[in-house]
Design a binder for these strands. Structure first.
Length: 170
DNA sequence: AAGAAGATTCGCT
DNA sequence: GCGAATCTTCTTA
């Protein structure tokens, strides 16, 4: 759920990836830095970072304070504020609005100012409750990493057209 | 101190 | 399919 001014944007989370404690492909692996400090917050805070000079990414912290682990939100199925999302993303194609982590951040107007926000509080960005049942959840290897490539830590709703990467139906 | 790689996307071929 | 965009961190000298 996202609130910008008078506008409301929201979507169902349909694809995530886990970056657990000790993961060599996680941003915490080499210790605490100015960029990754939000990952060390308590469960349910936002970790937003900028990568490749082009894209923001949104994570939800997932461990006790000081541990450093998160869940990358890779795709949402647009629910509210679709017209605004289309303007933010400069496309009218529904399935391209938030399919992929950089696109998701752009569609929700997320940038470094939302780094460290409490996602379980009444604020500009938060986690709502499910709007409907989730279909079967498929599991695969993670996308775009080069270490710990074999671990099955990507999760997505089977059959959803709003998921990035391989679209398994199992 | 400098270069390469990185949890990506877009436009062009 | 390939290269550019271009910020942060890590690696090597």
């Amino acid at each position: 759920m996202r609130k910008t001014g008078r506008n409301r944007i929201s979507g169902r989370i349909v694809e995530t990836e886990a970056y657990p404690p000790g993961d060599p492909s996680g941003h915490v692996y080499h210790g605490r830095t100015a960029r990754n400090q939000s990952l060390f917050l308590d469960v349910g805070f936002a970790y937003v970072y900028f990568i490749y000079g082009t894209s923001y990414m949104l994570n939800v912290t997932a461990e006790e304070p000081g541990v450093g682990a998160g869940v990358l939100l890779r795709a949402i199925e647009p629910v509210d504020g679709i017209d605004l999302m289309k303007r933010l993303r400069k496309t009218n194609k529904l399935t391209d609005l938030a399919r992929g982590p950089g696109r998701l951040a752009a569609a929700l107007e997320i940038d470094q100012r939302l780094d460290g926000v409490d996602l379980c509080a009444n604020g500009p960005l938060w986690l709502g409750t499910a709007v409907r049942e989730t279909a079967h959840i498929s599991t695969t290897v993670r996308i775009g990493i080069t270490r710990e490539v074999g671990r099955l830590l990507r999760f997505f709703e089977a059959g959803s057209p709003f998921v990035s990467g391989p679209h398994s139906t199992r």
